[in-house]
């Protein structure tokens, strides 16, 4: 590959789809995204993880990394993760979304869909392996930090948590700053925070956090 960018995980590149360089991965197209030469665009406006990478945070995502993805929805982001990484476990609890996610799994043999509740890791700990490299979480519900703490058991000691905290999921009236501070405080129960950044201009009122188990 001639597209190696030292700041991007192996398997993620910047490609031009007609309007300047954009993040891309190699894989079967999923949601009508622009494609070319086997690459498909990873739109940071539609993906908080894409935005986190775009903002320059080191997510720990790499070729062959093992990944647990919480809140996979219809598979938009996790499809790119599976293009890049090794075994990728995708947890989603809404059947409607999981049905679409199944379509994404058809062409990705390293992607394992699980219709489970991320607040109950004991219901999938018999499937998801230990010592994972990356835990991506985008559940956008109350108690987001708690979910991350509960799922810390899956991470290797030097593994990474990549969390998108949505301000309005916690409290529609509270100021985003207050919500973020509280989430970070809760996280510290199980993690050391390595980096964080607001996801503007891609996603309003979202904070991306990268952390490692303590």
């Amino acid at each position: 590959m001639s597209d190696d960018d030292p700041d991007l995980p192996a398997g993620v590149a910047r490609r031009d789809f007609g309007d300047g360089p954009a993040l891309a991965t190699r894989g079967e197209s999923v949601y009508g995204e622009p494609t070319g030469d086997g690459w498909r665009r990873w739109d940071p406006h539609r993906s908080k993880l894409g935005a986190t990478i775009e903002k320059g945070l080191d997510t720990g995502l790499s070729a062959d990394a093992s990944v647990l993805y919480l809140g996979a929805a219809n598979g938009t982001t996790v499809s790119h993760v599976a293009d890049v990484a090794g075994p990728t476990y995708a947890v989603e609890f809404a059947p409607r979304s999981a049905r679409d996610l199944l379509g994404v799994c058809d062409t990705r043999s390293n992607l394992f869909p699980l219709l489970k509740d991320a607040r109950k890791p004991e219901t999938y700990a018999h499937v998801v392996e230990a010592d994972l490299d990356v835990l991506v979480q985008d559940v956008a519900t109350r108690g987001q930090a708690r979910v991350a703490v509960e799922n810390a058991r899956f991470l290797a000691d030097d593994g990474r948590l990549v969390l998108a905290v949505k301000a309005r999921s916690e409290d529609v009236t509270a100021a985003p700053e207050a919500v973020f501070d509280e989430a970070l405080a809760d996280l510290r129960e199980a993690y050391d925070v390595l980096a964080r950044t607001p996801l503007e201009p891609y996603h309003d009122d979202h904070l991306a956090v990268v952390a490692t188990p303590r």
């Binding site: 075994p87 059947p95 999981a98 049905r99 996610l101 199944l102 799994c105 058809d106 043999s109 390293n110 992607l111 394992f112 869909p113 699980l114 219709l115 499937v127």
Partner: peptide, 16 residues
């Protein structure tokens, strides 16, 4: 991993 893929896809399809 092939077996895991088959099993998780079948389980999810049924649950859905």
């Amino acid at each position: 991993y092939d077996a895991l893929h088959e099993a998780t896809v079948a389980a999810t399809r049924r649950a859905v």
